[in-house]
Design a protein around this nucleic acid. Structure first.
Length: 425
DNA sequence: TCTGGGGTCCTAGGACCC
DNA sequence: TCTGGGGTCCTAGGACCC
């Protein structure tokens, strides 16, 4: 028995979630838009076949989508998050270890009985997920994360694989690695692939076989690790714990440019509240915050401004973080600029189990206990009744520039009001 | 008119220490 | 006049990921 790495992801995840709650759109073209209805970030296979590209601005394709009768949805992260949780729970039951890598993707491990292909095992898991969650998945199996990613790619690419591929059982991987373009290898991005191509390395096999010295000289450990994983040596371990995140970032584009500090401050407060709620959910504290704002990034006179401030005692308290962030916002704000985006980042996160207070600061501790209670009450009410049931008065966003979500589906899995009604005769 | 958002890891370089 | 060198910690920025 040897350990193998699995890489499992939901096919066209956001589009599949939308189709699952609204079966009437099945078989027809569908795209899902990013926040603010900006870009196309997911599409089903029908839309792909009709030539709709990923990542392109919605406004440029709006007419084409109408002509082709393709359904459009604003992104509904509450829905996708809920489906994701169900998926991960089911996967956890069926793997030995599980690392949740993103909303629609996980790495897992299982043991391989000596010499046995795991295709059938994958097929059974895929059927189980479809039956219980209603979402199609793909499964790649290999010796390392990089190889299991390639395996998943092949699972999707070769129709007859039906969404499952086990490259780990194959002795001579060359014919498969030859098919994988170098920029499709996990960890090789735009910059690295340009350099690799200049060295005449165009596919995964050539990357595996190139001089290690060369790649180390240019990209150090990072490059070396990718190459070693391609050779079958496990270098990037499975990380099961996911709660100890290192930073939390919340940012949004506005639907209209904002040029005054008052509106910007309201947005910042809103973002801090989202971020600090997350912080408390993960039982973490932060001791540094960055506030940033920028004008249109596609314009020649882009203006971007940011500042970071420290918080003397690590905290998860909304009020303290709001106060700090507002003073930072005031510092970096410039009049006569049309800001289209702002955000906050909480850094230096630590577990709240090891909290240290300043010495001789009893007054402060009492005040903080009070505000902590307030945070907890707000969190509880909002988690039961939906985000924004109760919130800080100053965070109410003016409707004019609140991000657009014009094509939002309902949240049929998490909100009682949206539960579908079925009439029986 | 309209172009997303949230993360991680690594490295180089500065500050500081002995 | 001479002006080391190694270690650690922190930060900003690059590159990449979904």
């Amino acid at each position: 028995m040897s350990k193998v790495i699995l890489q499992i992801d939901g096919n066209n995840f956001y589009a599949s979630c939308e189709q699952m709650i609204d079966p009437s759109i099945k078989g027809k073209g569908l795209v899902v838009l990013s926040n603010n209805d900006g870009c196309i970030i997911a599409r089903n296979s029908e839309a792909r076949k009709m030539g709709i590209p990923m990542g392109k601005p919605y406004f440029k394709l709006k007419n084409k989508l109408t002509q082709l009768n393709i359904n459009v949805r604003s992104s509904n992260y509450e829905l996708y998050g809920d489906i994701s949780n169900r998926l991960m729970q089911l996967l956890r039951k069926n793997c030995e270890e599980l690392e949740i890598y993103s909303i629609d993707e996980a790495f897992g491990t299982i043991k391989r009985p000596k010499g046995k292909c795991l295709y059938q095992w994958g097929k059974d898991l895929r059927a189980l997920v479809y039956q219980n969650i209603g979402i199609p998945i793909s499964i790649g199996i290999g010796e390392t994360k990089v190889l299991s990613k390639i395996s998943n790619h092949l699972a999707k690419k070769i129709q007859s694989n039906s969404g499952i591929f086990d490259i780990g059982i194959i002795q001579n991987k060359d014919p498969y690695l030859n098919q994988i373009k170098v920029d499709k290898v996990w960890g090789i991005g735009k910059r690295m692939s340009i350099w690799l191509k200049s060295k005449e390395i165009t596919n995964a096999r050539e990357l595996r076989d190139m001089s290690s010295e060369k790649i180390k000289g240019k990209y150090g450990l990072v490059g070396l690790r990718i190459q070693s994983e391609l050779k079958g040596n496990l270098c990037i371990p499975i990380k099961e714990t996911t709660t100890d995140r290192k930073e939390i970032c919340v940012s949004r584009s506005f639907s209209y440019p904002v040029d005054n500090l008052e509106d910007l401050s309201q947005a910042i407060i809103k973002y801090v509240l989202i971020a600090s709620t997350k912080l408390r959910k993960y039982n973490q504290l932060s001791s540094a915050i960055t506030v940033f704002m920028n004008t249109n990034t596609h314009s020649k006179d882009l203006f971007r401004s940011e500042a970071t401030g420290k918080i003397s005692v690590p905290t998860s308290n909304s009020k303290i973080i709001i106060e700090k962030s507002l003073s930072l916002a005031k510092e970096i704000y410039k009049p006569y600029k049309n800001f289209i985006k702002a955000g906050v980042i909480l850094h230096k996160l630590q577990s709240d189990q090891y909290k240290q207070n300043l010495l001789f600061d009893a007054q402060n501790i009492h005040e903080e206990l009070d505000t902590q209670r307030l945070d907890n009450v707000i969190d509880n009410i909002n988690s039961k009744n939906g985000i924004d049931t109760i919130n800080w008065g100053s965070s109410i966003m003016k409707n004019e520039w609140r991000p657009r979500r014009e094509k939002l589906s309902s949240i049929k899995t998490t909100n009682m009001e949206n539960i579908p009604i079925i009439y029986a005769n």
